[in-house]
Simulated scan of single mutants.
Amino acid sequence: MPPLDLHVAVFGASGAGKTVLLAAFYRAQTQPAFQEEYAYKIQAVNKAQGNQLLGRFYRLEEGKFPEGSTRFDEIEFDFFPRDLPEAAVRVHWYDYPGRWWEDDPVDAEEREAMRQGLLKLGMSQVGILLADGAKYRSEGTGYIRWLFEHFADECDRLRRTSAATGDEVSFPREWILALSKADLFPPDYGARDFEREVCRDADDQLAKLCSVLRAEHAFGHRFMLLSSVAAPADAQVDPRTSLGVRTLAPAVLVSTVEGAVREAQATRKEKSAKETFFQGLRDLVQFVDSVDDFLPKRYQIVSKILRFVSIKDFASTRVDRLKKIREDALRRGDTFKAVLTGMVAALRDEEGLRAYHQNQ
């Protein structure tokens, strides 16, 4: 059975930390200790890309931080359950270069690369906007307001430019706002604190951004803290100091399911205004066999996800119970259930609770 495809687009201005995040994301989840704890590991589909990411990380350990990407990169990762040979999930990671926020394409080749990159964004179930933690720490709320204004203006420009050339760009409808370099903040600072500050001090800018993206619920209810590596003054990097990196893929998975539920609810005229996500999910499961008939193509994978992960798993099952379900699935060779249940559990462990917060 082919793996489930999850598409995620990552945005961030130059210096926000996207390149370092990708290297840390890959390195952390290829290690035996990770596989033992979380019951899955990842592997780059393209071996050369995997080696390049590992090389970046090992140079990080020497204090050599990589230069930011100047091109649109697509990297694919397969998620394998522990001790099972079949991949369960394939993540397509689209890295939109920060330089494209700030400068026009230098030539026809780069213009075409931007056009092709924008078309791929429409395939993404989830977008991640990466805020620079160092700038937020030094500049405060003014930086976040600038980031939202700047990103909204850029998305609006990209949509107008694309429409003029006959290529209507579409952006992900589900978003995660992530704060990079979280090691710069106190140990008791969590994603919930970040959410409180942003919603309190930049609500007007959030509203504008949602309007530009044509998605009422796009921003303002999923927040993450991410620390790819800790970088003290002597620049000696400890690979065990990451935060949120292991929570990222699970957050994307759950956001994808939430997006599908929202799409399904929108098609039902009798929906109650007070209907919760999990009520909508319960209704979705009742006719999961026909869900592909009305969900947009980017969300059709949800019909498969919901056959392997129960409503209770998403809603309230305890971590220890989720881990037991995961281990049972491994013993049966149930690839999908093992990985998907493991991801849901990762959102409930100690790191997940600090690194990821959802306020709706």
Rank of each mutant, 00 (worst) to 15 (best):
310 S>W: 09
7 H>M: 00
60 L>W: 03
188 D>N: 13
207 A>Q: 14
8 V>A: 09
288 V>K: 10
130 L>G: 02
265 Q>H: 07
1 M>A: 15
167 D>V: 12
18 K>E: 04
66 P>K: 02
135 K>Y: 08
90 R>N: 13
146 W>R: 14
205 Q>L: 02
44 A>C: 15
189 Y>E: 10
255 S>V: 02
110 E>A: 10
7 H>Y: 03
141 T>P: 01
250 P>Y: 00
98 G>F: 07
162 S>W: 01
183 D>T: 07
218 A>F: 08
353 L>N: 06
244 G>F: 05
275 E>R: 10
294 F>Q: 11
163 A>Y: 00
169 V>C: 04
338 A>S: 12
209 L>R: 01
20 V>Y: 04
187 P>I: 10
269 K>W: 12
60 L>Q: 09
23 A>R: 03
237 V>W: 07
202 A>N: 01
308 F>A: 14
15 G>E: 03
319 V>M: 11
7 H>C: 09
341 T>L: 09
224 M>R: 02
48 A>I: 05
182 A>W: 04
17 G>Y: 01
194 F>L: 15
92 H>W: 13
278 F>K: 02
257 V>Q: 01
10 V>D: 02
183 D>E: 14
82 R>M: 07
232 P>K: 02
162 S>K: 03
318 R>E: 15
76 E>Q: 15
180 S>E: 00
304 K>V: 15
354 R>P: 03
152 A>E: 01
104 D>P: 09
43 Q>M: 08
146 W>P: 04
212 V>L: 06
152 A>Y: 01
269 K>T: 14
294 F>V: 15
